[in-house]
Design a protein around this nucleic acid. Structure first.
Lengths: 248, 248
DNA sequence: CGCCAGCCTTGACGCAGATCAAAGACGGGG
DNA sequence: CCCCGTCTTTGATCTGCGTCAAGGCTGGCG
């Protein structure tokens, strides 16, 4: 356990998103105490692999800070990202002891882990926690299905615009809004990771980013900084029918 | 309510897959009685739309027989199938009143429906039902993620082989095995539906089917009949690392 | 029995995105 | 401050799949 782990573990539970997301206001104090008991923190450096597909996994977890990805790989090395885990997202699968996907930290990452067996018991005996987790899983399933539309039917340009919109939306939801429907934020992914997300090559990602910049849809500062002068324009480029659920 | 509905509703609950899948052996008689009370059957003809995306949906359901698809559409008509519902699969989302996707019957279809509000209450008060549903949703999420790998990184030939393997596996799991790792079955999808599933055009589907036939990977009888002389060969063509979970 | 409507197949051609290759921009460490 | 490894951009060329366009099956209905 690193120094940082110790520091985090001693902080109040409010740091742990599962408090907000899987544990609801109807939790009894003794139920919360049970969760506390099986909880521990882990941190990983950017680029580090959290777990390999097929490995034993005897905990479930919630992302506290940083970004992780779920990826799947074919024998010949073709890779597809199948999940993007942002703070408050849940990882792992109650009822199964091995990981189905590679989990990788793309930025420095802190996770709040729960030992699997006791967590499953809590799940079995605490309906509102099970229901909260069900709701989160259904959200993930919806997200996965939108992603399938992106992978199957969108052009490279639309894919890029969609990804930027998704990240901007998540950032905005976390309160990092700037006024006037103009957003600035850091892309937490390399071009390669974006390509893995979108089912493209990194060259195509780079080219389309340049094209969107040339057309005034986005502005780029350095490798990671991005600002969106007109969110509506971006959403239009993404080809979605919805407004993407942007706040404001 | 059609004649067939009446007939089904009067049959024993064993016809309804939710009995096997979401309702577990730990259900008390009075819990089962509660489910019975909010349950009704509906049937649809092949090609009929069950519900449009955005429509009010005040029930959840389980497929009894037949096949349904979940699809998403862009304004310009590009379509992507995001879910394939076979018997015993669950449709609908507790906690949300509108459909997120178009649901279409691709064959004649019978569904066992539960009124949403009371179903949610049962869910909230019956942990083992909630947990069973959670498990089913996690399975679907895993399937969606494998599908994402297919959409993002597989070639047209691999996509076709994968789809055939998936359908064969599901058919095999339902007990329709033929001896010696040789399978014969009916494709329940048109070429167009296959294309929507795989993110291809129907012409490409047709060409790749012909190519697989020419190369002896599959045999075709009429439009729908298909036999797989060597399942291992098919799985190899699909590009997966796993054996696809085939029984036998 | 034969016509017609829906599927399905096959061919020719073009283009979006992959591949191969090279050269910039950083940013961190000595 | 400069060097070097990593990430990114850009260019040239290739190719798998989409698009457009003709026919071919098959089954249902007059």
């Amino acid at each position: 356990m690193s120094l940082q782990d110790v520091k985090l573990a001693s902080q109040k539970c409010a740091d742990c998103p599962i408090r907000h997301r899987a544990v609801c206001s109807r939790c009894e104090p003794e139920e919360l105490a049970l969760l506390e008991e099986v909880k521990f923190y882990r941190s990983y450096a950017a680029g580090q692999t959290v777990i390999w597909s097929g490995d034993r996994m005897d905990f479930v977890a919630s992302v506290v800070s940083g970004i992780a990805t779920l990826t799947q790989t074919l024998e010949d090395g073709r890779r597809q990202m199948v999940g993007l885990l942002l703070p408050s997202d849940f990882v792992g699968r109650p009822g199964r002891g091995t990981a189905a996907f590679d989990v990788t930290a793309t930025t420095d990452l802190v996770m709040c882990c729960f030992r699997r067996k006791p967590f499953e018991e809590i799940l079995a005996n605490t309906p509102h926690i099970a229901n909260r987790l069900l709701e989160m899983t259904l959200d993930e399933l919806d997200a996965a299905r939108e992603w399938m539309l992106l992978l199957g039917r969108k052009t490279a340009r639309e894919k890029i615009a969609s990804l930027i919109a998704i990240i901007a939306r998540r950032d905005a939801a976390l309160g990092r809004r700037t006024p006037g429907r103009r957003f600035s934020f850091e892309l937490p992914l390399t071009r390669e990771a974006m390509a893995d997300y979108l089912g493209l090559t990194l060259e195509t990602v780079s080219r389309q980013m340049s094209a969107l910049k040339r057309d005034g849809v986005i502005e780029l500062e350095g490798k990671r900084g991005i600002t969106i002068p007109d969110v509506d324009r971006l959403i239009e480029e993404a080809g979605d029918d919805s407004d993407g659920g942007f706040p404001g």
